[in-house]
């Protein structure tokens, strides 16, 4: 027996409301793209925000949507950075977009392999294992000095024009437009993904893995999948860094980078995709301002912010971002009212 069509349409509407674009979101991207023409003198920092935002978005996919705590997400970022830089330096792939894809795929491959390490164990073991993987890669890059330049970093990288047309300049104009477009495309993919049945199943795995498997969801399979995808995103973020700065150094693998990343995501709030982007904006401008005051003691302020956020409570800190989140119940009710009206007019 089928339920009445009105009920089905209301239910459809409710489900679809999760994925509907909010006016604030549209505004966010309009401003981001307008910045290409509006703030040409800020393009360097905006570029950094773009790749940091992408990196944080990637962490959000595993932390906010799958509940995996990682202290070594820089492993994928670093691999992406070195891949892109090496491809350019040895002129293996000259076209940046193609190199970006290869870097992303390399990071995905690493993500897939290491995902099996985070399937089991407590938060602490996951934390240690992810940290260990990042440290291993750092050590590897350090030891392979003939290839990577070791502790001096990979110098003498020159990046060819994007698509053979747009040359990177020292003011970051091309860099920002390029990074922003990459970020936007990957954001759209992530947005699709989290609003899909697959994304919903991730939330179920995070919320209650026991029940998720009891309704036929392969918990391990979902974790492997999202970890792999997120690693690819992080790799592309790292590749963007390498391409826009023509440089890669051991620092891309560092613990500080993974820890900063957690802060970025936490400032913005995890689990709704914009957290990483908003966090990246706040973090970069904060860094810009505070390290201008005391460059050496910048870590102190990061630490203070972390401690304060935890003491005050993460939810309270990020409550102002609520309009970006999908809890917009008034919108659902309006949709319901619209449909009731529509169906009653149909009957007449």
């Amino acid at each position: 027996m089928l339920p009445p069509p009105i009920a089905i349409r209301v239910a459809t509407e409710w489900l679809a409301a999760r994925a509907r674009w909010q006016p604030l979101e549209v505004g966010f991207w309009i401003v981001a793209f307008a910045a290409i023409w509006l703030f040409p003198d800020r393009h360097l920092i905006l570029t950094e925000i773009a790749w940091l935002g992408l990196f944080a978005l990637s962490l959000d996919l595993i932390l906010g949507y799958a509940g995996i705590i990682s202290l070594g997400h820089a492993a994928f970022f670093g691999l992406g950075a070195y891949t892109a830089a090496l491809l350019a330096k040895y002129e293996i792939i000259n076209e940046p977009v193609l190199a970006l894809l290869v870097a992303g795929l390399a990071a995905m491959a690493l993500g897939f392999v290491t995902s099996f390490l985070v399937l089991r164990g407590s938060d602490l073991t996951r934390l240690m294992v992810t940290l260990g993987v990042a440290l291993l890669l750092r050590e590897l890059a350090n030891r392979l000095g003939w290839l990577t330049g070791g502790a001096d970093g990979l110098q003498g990288v020159s990046i060819k024009p994007v698509l053979g047309m747009f040359r990177f300049d020292m003011f970051g104009h091309t860099g920002y437009a390029y990074s922003l477009i990459v970020l936007f495309i990957l954001f759209l993919i992530a947005r699709r993904l989290v609003n899909s049945p697959f994304g919903l199943s991730l939330l179920s795995v995070k919320g209650n893995p026991l029940r998720a498997s009891a309704i036929g969801i392969s918990v391990d399979g979902r974790l492997i999948a999202i970890y792999t995808v997120a690693a690819g995103f992080a790799g592309i973020a790292g590749a963007l860094l390498a391409q826009t700065t023509s440089f890669a150094s051991l620092e891309v693998f560092s613990f500080d980078r993974s820890a900063d990343l957690l802060l970025v995501l936490i400032i913005g709030g995890a689990g709704y995709l914009y957290g990483g982007l908003i966090g990246a904006i706040i973090f970069k401008f904060m860094q810009d301002y505070l390290s201008a005051l005391t460059p050496q003691y910048w870590p102190f302020w990061i630490g203070l912010v972390l401690v304060v956020i935890v003491m005050v409570g993460r939810d309270r800190i990020t409550s102002w971002t609520a309009p970006f989140r999908r809890i917009a119940s008034h919108l659902n009710w309006r949709a319901l009212a619209r449909h009731v009206a529509a169906s009653s007019s149909e009957r007449r």
Binding site: I69, L71, D123, L127, A259, L262, L263, I266, P299, F300, I302, G303, L304, V305, L306, V307, I309, V310, M311
Partner: peptide, 11 residues
């Protein structure tokens, strides 16, 4: 984790 990393950075 966040809290104690924060303390580490501050120290």
């Amino acid at each position: 984790v966040l809290f104690s990393i924060g303390l580490v950075f501050m120290s």
